[in-house]
Design a protein around this nucleic acid. Structure first.
Lengths: 202, 202
DNA sequence: GTCTATACCCCGATAGAC
DNA sequence: GTCTATCGGGGTATAGAC
């Protein structure tokens, strides 16, 4: 990561994404981006003529595919969808711990700061959440999981949202506990929707 | 709200809290605060000699007690703890809708922006989440709820975290659906921990 | 595409009169 | 406690040589 072999444009986007993850949109200056990416300030404007807003959107799209890879890895680690929830939570804990609790969701801070002012960024955030949610829903809908279509859709919402909130709390308290609990609860919730003779409905 | 009969200091804190809720910490300028609160810039520094950081912490503490009132109202609306989850989600939807989807969690944006840089603010955020979580846990532990001590503690974590994430998604998508789903799922989860002869365990 | 230099503005914070 | 004025710095963005 932060590879020197990357092209200039990619290095700018990657650096922006990481800085906005930790400091948000308003808290990240273009000068800081150019310095940490070891790129001339004018190069940033060369690749992103529309300035910070365009750069912010590119950073969100970058974070989108990057985190989608992590999510896919967690989903592929087990056949059981409930177990996959625990695995995802543990993966997030590992990433957080390895970054001294700094690298949480890469787009949440930016999303909240700009929600009231920059609709283009809000749209990019909405697209990203939708993408991640689809990856979860696909896993829950897989044959053998035994979860109805509508249930899978709703569950995917709560899975993403619970992980999102638990990751925030984990960051603030510098503890993996919120995510551990979230993983267990999500597994239990997913299991409760599996169709079969041994389950009892609510 | 935004009452003219408030003292100068209170008006500053309240305005700061609302602006940081919508724009985050870095996105909110002290000049904007003084203007919207109809207060001289020097008055802000008169009441908060340590500047923006001190003001930010005061705004978080203000948001703490303000949202705790909302939470208590929702908890008191029904005896059944599972129903209380649905009621809370609906209350959040109402607040969001009434503010054109702008007023979500008042401290999340500030928390994320400053997590890597201002430990004092991070501490105030942690205290606030802890306070809110206690309000939930107390409801779940109430006699008649039939939830074990340890389960109530864990559930309170996930309740806060799920609502937090669902509110974020609701803001971004300008839709109450994520919170509606969250309310239903949390109710189901809480119910699954109630002790009694008719429940089956996982 | 990258360099240096800079315009222009707003930021947080302070000074001193009243 | 509130007023006006201002300082020093850093923000976004641009110009023009190379």
């Amino acid at each position: 990561m932060t590879d020197t072999a990357l092209g200039t444009r990619d290095r700018i986007v990657q650096t922006t994404s990481r800085l906005m993850q930790r400091q948000g949109y308003e808290g990240t200056a273009i000068k800081q981006i150019s310095q940490e990416a070891r790129v001339a300030l004018s190069s940033v404007y060369h690749f992103f003529p529309n300035g910070k807003q365009e750069l912010g959107i590119a950073a969100i799209r970058h974070a989108d595919v990057e985190f989608a890879d992590i999510l896919r890895e967690a989903m592929a680690s087990t056949d059981d969808p409930a177990e996959a929830m625990v695995a995802t939570a543990e993966l997030l804990i590992t990433h957080l711990r390895n970054s001294d609790w700094l690298d949480g969701c890469p787009i949440t801070a930016t999303a909240l700061e700009t929600a009231s002012r920059i609709p283009e960024i809000q749209q990019a955030v909405a697209d990203t959440f939708d993408h991640w949610r689809t990856l979860i829903a696909d896993k829950l809908r897989a044959e053998g999981a035994g979860i109805a279509e509508q249930d899978a859709h709703d569950l995917a919402h709560t899975v993403i949202n619970t992980l999102e909130g638990a990751e925030l709390t984990a960051q603030v308290t510098r503890s993996g506990e919120p995510l551990e609990i979230a993983g267990r609860h999500l597994a239990r919730l997913v299991d409760s929707y599996r169709q079969g003779p041994t389950r009892c409905d609510r």
